[in-house]
Amino acid sequence: MSERYIIEQISMFCKNEPGRLASMARVLEENGINMLALSIAEANDFGVVRALVDKSDRAKEVLTDMGFMVKVTEVIGVNMRDEPGGLTCIATTLADADINIDYAYAYSGKGAAVLILRVSDTMVAVKAILDAGHELLSRDQLG
C-alpha cells in the first residue's frame, strides 16, 4: 500500500520575532518529541515552520494547547542517492509525471539523504517515484 509512504508533517504559523521558535522547540522538548527535519519559510512579518517529528499527532496537540496555529500536512520523503545527480533523477521523475513541487527541503546524514516534498498530487507522486525505482521514506520509519 502506497499510503504508508504518506508522511505527516506539522506546519506551524510563527510570528517573525525573537523567541517564537525557541518556545515551539521547548514545547516539543518537554513532551519528548523528536524532530527529524525542519524548514522555515519566511514572508515579511511571519514564517511557516515545517517539521517532521516522531509523534505528529501529539506535537499538534501540545503546540495547539500552547496557542500555536498548527496544521498537519501530507508530504513524502524520498531517499536520494547521496551523490551528484541524486536530486536530478527524482525531480525529473516528478516533472515527467507532471507533478508540481509546492516546496521541498532536504536533510542528509546517517548514511542517507532525504528529500521532503510537498507536491500537487501526493498519491500520483508516490506512484511515480516508486515506479521509477526510487525509495520512499515510510511512515513507520519516523516514529
Binding site: 508533517q9 506546519s11 504559523f13 511571519f46 511557516v48 496555529m69 498548527v70 496544521k71 516546496y103 510537498r118
Partner: peptide, 15 residues
C-alpha cells in the same frame, strides 16, 4: 488574527 482553519503550510496561500 488568522482563523486556524484557513492556516496553510503554503506561503502562497497565506499571501
Amino acid at each position: 488574527e488568522l482563523t486556524p482553519e484557513v492556516f496553510s503550510d503554503r506561503i502562497n496561500d497565506l499571501m
